[in-house]
Each structure stands twice: as structure tokens, then as C-alpha cells.
Design a protein around this nucleic acid. Structure first.
Lengths: 202, 202
DNA sequence: CGGTTACTTGACTAGCTTCAAGCCTTGTGG
DNA sequence: CCACAAGGCTTGAAGCTAGTCAAGTAACCG
């Protein structure tokens, strides 16, 4: 679910943004932290995860180069709901809240772009809420796949490679790996997905 | 989960907004419709619901007087994810997309306010995603109650009346009424909630 | 007082989770 | 080029929790 790109990194750097590298698995901010910076992904991939008390992990969102993250909590001054973690070696620009607000004041244009990016995010959160409300594992997985296909604007008919591991599908849908595997196997038999070399096409 | 109020109804009327009444239960727009108007609630209450194929109903959001609704889909030009339905007799202003866009162009101020309202909405959607990812019915209900308490900025300690019916709690959490009842009864025995005259305090 | 709405309880079932074990594939170092 | 480690995938058996269906009770309102 990549978001659109409302902010050029150049602007962020002009306003005093600083780049920082993160190794795979290292944390950019923790759930509960009070936001100080705006972040933008330059290279790599950053995921937003909720961890439940028993150590289970759920992926709330994934951010790609160009995407900004953490703005809602930053703007509201509320603690982060999720932890942001680099899912691969990543480069991130961070900009202090004060400078970010200056930037917003100076450029109504950017505010509008951000507004559209937020609209996109609300929209996809509503879709993912619908996914989580599905009662059967099959419907959840199908909803997840459909979201992915819409996000990368794939034609509905053509089968597309789902570039996620079983574990990642589980982390997105809130199911267990075994359930994902068993459901996919069944769906394969019923020709609802294709599994070739363990890769899933839908 | 009421949102802040970025738009005064006066401005909407100035830009050509038209008021319309809706009886309790009547639909403002349907899931799948292509958005044409921006809506603002003036009186009453409007809920956003997803209906699953078997007729079950899930409440995605509730809007109170002053709140605008349907902007994400409208701005993106995508079909509505949910159905908007008046949960009580309501009055709503509707403004055509074109005029809404004019309004945004004319008033950077309003764009900024909308941005903050969107931030609030993303934030609360993340919280509700976390709620849905909880595995047990008890944790879901507790997460829902906590969301409610935060929304009305209740002090965490004090017990607060939860102003929802069992059915509504079920519709928000994605559980069944019977499950909600059984879980609440158990939580009452374990002193995790208080039930007095069938009313729930948490 | 009668009808509607909300709440409650019980018995049964289905489906997801859990735990445990084993297999396949990929990449790395000797 | 082989061996082995590590991560991902798969399978089976058992348990438990939420869902379903059915029936009935309590509160509310005109």
C-alpha cells in the first residue's frame, strides 16, 4: 500500500532535514513515543507494526521511498500508535516538527498534496478495516489480495504474483501462518488462486 | 469518534451547499457509488457501515453535527467503501465536488483544517485496526472501550458509562451480540467492568 | 397494556489456533 | 562442489473460542 509522494526530499533538506540510515530490523520510533520528527523514506522500506503482548506482530502499513510517515501523530501531538521498523536497510530523512510546520505555512501547495495523500490513506485504511471484518480466513485473504491488486492498479482479471511470504500475509490479515497455508492450499485446489513453485498468483 | 469541525456550515451554504433531511435509517450514499457531493452533518447522526454478504452490519465510523463525510473517496474519485446511513433523523448539507474544490482553492486555511481533521481520522483508524487485530473478544471490547474513553478524554482511572447497546458494541468490534453479552458478564464477575441496571461502566 | 426493542441463556458446531514435528529451498563457507 | 545452516513452507492432531440457532425474559414507550 504505497502512498503518493507529496513531498520532494529536496524541500525537506532545504528546510533542515537530516538523513539517517537504519539497518534491517532497527526501529525508527516506538509505539507510545511522543513524536518529534517527520520522517520520509528515501531508500529501502519501513513498516508500521503493532505488537501484541504475546509477541505477535501485525503489519499496519508499509512505506516505500517517497512516502512520509508518522505525520498524523506528529500533527496531533499524540503518542505513536505503532512502531516504525525498517524492513530492509533504509535511508530516511527526518525533519523537526517545528520546521515541518514552517514548511506547511510557507507552501499551501504542499498542504494540498498532503491532504490528498491523507485521503488515500484513509481510503485504504477503510478497505483494510473491511478486510479484518471478514469472518472467514478465505475472505480475509481475498480482500487482502484485492487491496494489493488495486494498490498496484492491476487489471482485475489477470493473475498477479503476490510478492509476500505466508508469514507476511498472516501479519497483514491477523491470521496464523498455518491458517494462511491451509487456506491457500484449499483455494489452489478450488482454482481460486494458483500456486506455482510455492509462489501465489491471484 | 467524532471528528473536529473544519468547515462552518455558513461557508458551505455560501458556496452553494443545499440542505437535505434524512429519516432514521435512510441512506445518504451506498457502498460502490461514485461520489458526487461533499456532505456535512448539521443535525442528527450519520454512520458509515459495511454490510457483509450475509447481511451483517459493521460500523466503521459515526459522524456528528459539524463533521464532514465522504471526502476521501470524493477527492480521490474512487467509489465509496461504505454506506452512509442516518442513525437518527438528520439534516445534512451537500455541496458538489466542483464547488468543494473551488472552496479548497480559495481558502488554504480550510485545507489546513481539513488536513488536521484527516490526521485525527487516520489516527483513530489505526487505533481501531489494533482493536480488530486483538485475538480475544475481551481484548477487543477493552480496546473499544479505551478508544471511547480517549475520544471523550475521560481520565483512565474513573469508570465511565459506556453509552452503547450490546448490539452496537458488537457492530463496532465485529463480534456477535451473544459473544459481547457473555464476555461482558464474565468481565463483570472478574471485576473488569461494572454492570449496573444493564448499563456498562468501564 | 400491548408491542417493540434490548438483553440473556443454553446447546451445538465450525473453524481458527496451538503445538509439535518434519520437509524443501536458498545461500554461504570450507 | 558439497555440506550444512537458516528461513520459509507444510502437515497432523487436539483444543478452545466465537459463531449459530433457538427460545425466552426484562425494560421501555406509546
Amino acid at each position: 500500500m504505497p502512498n503518493s509522494t507529496p513531498l520532494s526530499s529536496d524541500v525537506l533538506l532545504t528546510y533542515g532535514g537530516v538523513t539517517q540510515k537504519f539497518e534491517k530490523g532497527s526501529v525508527i520510533y516506538y509505539e507510545g513515543d511522543i513524536p518529534i520528527f517527520l520522517y520520509q523514506v528515501i531508500e529501502g522500506e519501513v513498516k508500521l507494526i503493532s505488537t501484541s503482548p504475546d509477541g505477535k506482530e501485525f503489519i499496519q502499513d508499509i512505506f516505500c521511498p517517497g512516502d512520509t510517515l508518522g505525520e498524523p501523530a506528529l500533527l496531533l501531538g499524540e503518542p505513536y500508535v505503532c512502531t516504525a521498523q525498517a524492513s530492509s536497510k533504509s535511508v530516511v530523512i527526518k525533519l523537526s516538527k517545528e520546521r515541518f510546520l514552517n514548511l506547511l505555512c510557507d507552501s499551501p501547495d504542499i498542504v494540498t498534496k498532503l491532504l490528498f495523500a491523507f485521503a488515500r490513506r484513509i481510503y485504504s485504511k477503510m478497505l483494510s478495516t473491511q478486510m479484518l471484518l471478514e469472518t472467514s480466513s478465505e475472505d480475509k485473504i481475498k480482500a487482502f489480495f484485492n487491496q494489493f491488486k488495486t494498490a498496484c492498479s492491476a487489471i482485475d482479471r489477470a493473475e498477479v504474483l503476490i510478492p509476500y511470504t505466508r508469514q507476511q500475509i498472516a501479519d497483514f490479515t491477523g491470521l496464523r501462518v498455518e491458517t494462511v497455508i491451509r487456506t491457500l492450499t484449499r483455494m489452489n485446489k478450488e482454482a481460486k488462486v494458483s500456486i506455482i513453485n510455492r509462489k501465489v498468483y491471484y
